[in-house]
Design a protein around this nucleic acid. Sequence first.
RNA 1: GGGUAGAUUCCCGAGCGGCCAAAGGGAGCAGACUGUAAAUCUGCCGUCUCUGACUUCGGUGGUCCGAAUCCACCUCUACCCA
Length: 371
Amino acid sequence: MFKYEVLKVCKQSGARVGKLTTPHGEILTPVFMPVGTNATVKGLTPRDVEETKASIILANTFHLYLRPGEDLVAKAGGLHNFMQWNKPILTDSGGFQVFSLSKLRKINDDGVTFSSYIDGSKHFMSPEKAIQIENKLGADIIMAFDECTEGNADYAESRTALRRTNLWLDRCYKEHKNENQMLFPIVQGNMYKDLRIESVKRVLDYAKCGFSIGGLSVGEPKPVMYEMLDTLREFYPVDQPRYLMGVGSPDCLVEGVLRGIDMFDCVIPTRMARNGTAFTRNGNLTIRNATFAEDFLPVEEGCDCYCCRNFSRAYIRHLIKSDEILGGVLLSIHNIRFLTKLMEDIRQSIWEDRFGDFYKDFVSKYKWGKS
RNA sequence: GGGUAGAUUCCCGAGCGGCCAAAGGGAGCAGACUGUAAAUCUGCCGUCUCUGACUUCGGUGGUCCGAAUCCACCUCUACCCA
């Protein structure tokens, strides 16, 4: 049911194109996966998401457990049916929420006790429970329940979190019974090379058709993240996709592929869209800014997305300034399409053994902020 | 014609003798955002030679050591009475 094949390795860079087969379809890697935490990519219909050529999206166990509840999703026929997305879905386990909602939780080896951000009610999440919920939600790929630490966590704290992540990893695999779902283990270890290496070795004892790298892009500088990826690289088996969790700025995607990463997800294209910023190959454009008030060009010339084919920067700026929902919707469409197109172009350059050149060209043009 | 209330920095609006360049909104401008408690958050928002100085609170004149705040007249606005 699950299969990963490497289709091509770039002679110039070593980056690769692969194909991951799942019950709901095939995914060409390297791939960017848009995030739809609450069983919706914010603001977009599945039709919109499909038009961006996204081949797989994320949803979140933690959020769907709190509302509407995994039983209701199961009753609806599973996530695919509930949200009307018939391509692959990956559910995150809620491990990241242990980190991002840290003020609301208490953690020990058994699991995590936390207060709901919705109504303050007390809940308990364990590796077993997370897997049970993910089984009910029915995504194609499900994530192990891990403990993610902050970018500046000290060694002792990082080691404790890793020990717990490892403990939980075993419990996740014992609990997981649904053969229609591939369980990905998660590498942790913060910014400590020895912990990262220990973690990846451990993870590979469990990984069958894919594994992921978590706990990066959590506040550390980008070069530190790249260093961690460089450290891990020699341990990767060739026959499994490698998923770098939570990474999605255009420059990080390119840097990640160069370091052997096959899968990425991130909220950043949709969040930045709602906050008025667009990705382009020449750098980010804060469409909200006054400079675009009378700019009647599309967000990015040459882009084939619905937004760029039809609307001007001036119009989108007007929508954003007027707090009209459509502004965020259109920019979300563009930003996601920008990333899926970036991945298409990366794959093409790998096929043609020129990803090294593509990388240099991209990095020389793309700027994150104002230059 | 008579009466009453009012005129505050782009807008709304607080201030009612010193702690006022003047609360709070809004608008405007800019920044942040990486497994989404984020259509959110942060900063700036009179001028300047900017750890200080200068010019502002309808206008003019006055009282006072000191006025956006008190007094007089004027202008305008709203409502009421004729």
